[in-house]
Simulated scan of single mutants.
Amino acid sequence: MSLNLNEHLDTGLELMGAVLGQEYADGLRQRLTALRESGATEEAIDHTQFGIAAAWGYMFHRRGVSLRDRSIAMLAADVTLHGKGALGDHVRLALHAGVTPDEVREIMFTLILYVGFPQVREATEVITPILEEFERTGKYTQESSAPATDKS
């Protein structure tokens, strides 16, 4: 499987729609269109496309490791590297891929020994509302994941 940005962009946006909500994926499509229409540099367009195509369209679909297992690795990386910005999306991805809320909590508990209590406590502030909503409703919302839109 090679990395063809155009080919993997649609696959990535499709998965993002399933995990983060169609509104989120549509917002990114609109952002890409706006970048192209505004005459943005190829670099600006490529940065946006690359993140979607490389991770969501390519990496998450590779054989050898399940999406479930990849999402667990991503949670550990987010906590270790203080990746609070992506952590909520990655928790939603883990739930989408079949990781249970109790497993997410156990992963966090394990990480206390390896990355430290402060990082896990900080991550738990992001994770807890998502898990509680999922346990209460069987769903998670994407409100906190919605891309910022320019209202000017």
Rank of each mutant, 00 (worst) to 15 (best):
L5I: 14
R36E: 14
T33P: 07
E23C: 02
I112G: 01
A73D: 08
E125M: 10
E103K: 13
H96T: 03
A25S: 13
P147W: 05
L20C: 14
L3Q: 09
H61E: 12
D150E: 11
L113I: 09
Y58N: 02
W56R: 09
S38I: 04
A76R: 11
R29D: 11
Q30P: 02
E132W: 04
A54T: 04
Y58L: 13
L81P: 10
G88N: 03
A18W: 00
T100R: 02
G51H: 08
T141C: 06
E125C: 01
H90V: 11
G21E: 00
G138S: 03
A148Y: 07
Q119S: 15
G85T: 13
G138H: 00
V19N: 02
A76V: 07
I72E: 12
A123Y: 04
S71W: 03
T110W: 04
Y114R: 01
S66L: 12
G85E: 13
A55F: 15
T128N: 06
R36V: 06
K139P: 06
L131V: 15
M108V: 04
Q119H: 14
I130A: 08
E125A: 04
R68T: 08
A44W: 15
G64E: 07
H90I: 11
I72N: 15
T48Q: 10
E133L: 13
R105V: 12
D78A: 06
S2F: 09
L9W: 15
L111N: 01
L32W: 00
G88Y: 09
T124H: 11
G116N: 04
L20P: 09
T48M: 11
A77T: 03
G116H: 10
D46C: 07
M1R: 13
V126M: 05
E143Y: 02
W56M: 00
L113R: 06
R31Q: 14
M74G: 10
L28E: 08
R105H: 03
H8Q: 14
P147A: 08
M74I: 12
A146Y: 13
R68L: 09
L3R: 14
T41K: 04
L113V: 08
F109A: 10
G27D: 03
